[in-house]
């Protein structure tokens, strides 16, 4: 079968894309410390921890988790992080955000804060903390361009490791009701024979997806 016929017969591009994706291993752990459940008028807010000096939880990852938790059959209303943090400025800034549930209890004594949280209908605050690290970079790719054309030759690979924790605080009882941890690792490869072909492990995307699915079930009390 010629390539053109092969493509014409509808070889799905998504399958090709899938074949070009490297493998990822994801582990999710759940530690429950209290009962959970959420009413339809209630919401959650997912916030990234940014107190560390070595890393900050990326806003994109927090948004990814929020977006996935708010869809599907067990969809939960999620207040966007930026909207919540701006609305409650300066109480949830990196320097001032509550680190323990007792800090949240003290913070809720501020009438302005309590009113805003009630206005949003926030039942749970989820603190996401973690990062993706790239290690074991090996190989090299050389590219050259000449009058007759150009091309690359070589091989590169690296390993990505995403580690994220989500701590769930119940705003009604000022208690930490549980922690969900996700660890995703994957090796990416870029072989290059004339054209570089990236085989990228979607490590952070898988960590986001796994964490969001588990978090949705956890909050719904499933």
């Amino acid at each position: 079968m010629s390539t053109s016929k092969f493509v014409r017969q509808g070889f799905p591009l998504w399958l090709l894309a899938g074949l070009l994706t490297a493998c990822t291993t994801t582990t999710v752990d759940e530690f429950r410390q209290g009962e959970t459940g959420i009413e339809s008028h209630e919401a959650i807010v997912i916030l990234g921890r940014r107190q560390g000096s070595t890393y900050e939880t990326r806003e994109e990852f927090v948004n990814c988790v929020g977006e996935r938790v708010s869809r599907g059959s067990g969809a939960i209303r999620v207040i966007p992080e930026k909207e919540f943090v701006d609305s409650l400025f300066p109480w949830f800034e990196p320097r001032t955000a509550p680190l323990r549930t007792s800090d949240l209890q003290a913070l809720m004594e501020e009438q302005v804060v309590a009113d805003k949280i009630e206005e949003y209908g926030v039942r749970y605050i989820v603190w996401v903390d973690g990062q993706t690290e790239t290690t074991n970079r090996t190989g090299s790719i050389s590219c050259a361009v000449g009058p007759g054309g150009g091309g690359c030759f070589g091989f590169g690979s690296w390993e990505d490791d995403s580690n994220f924790d989500a701590r769930v605080w119940d705003v009604s009882s000022f208690a930490n009701v549980g922690t969900i941890s996700t660890d995703a690792t994957g090796q990416s490869y870029v072989p290059a024979v004339v054209v570089p072909i990236p085989l990228i492990a979607r490590v952070e995307a898988n960590a986001c997806s796994s964490l969001a699915t588990q978090l949705q079930q956890f909050v719904n009390g499933d």
Partner: peptide, 10 residues
Amino acid sequence: EGSYPTPAVR
């Protein structure tokens, strides 16, 4: 250039 939120304080 930037924008700054209004503090929610008494």
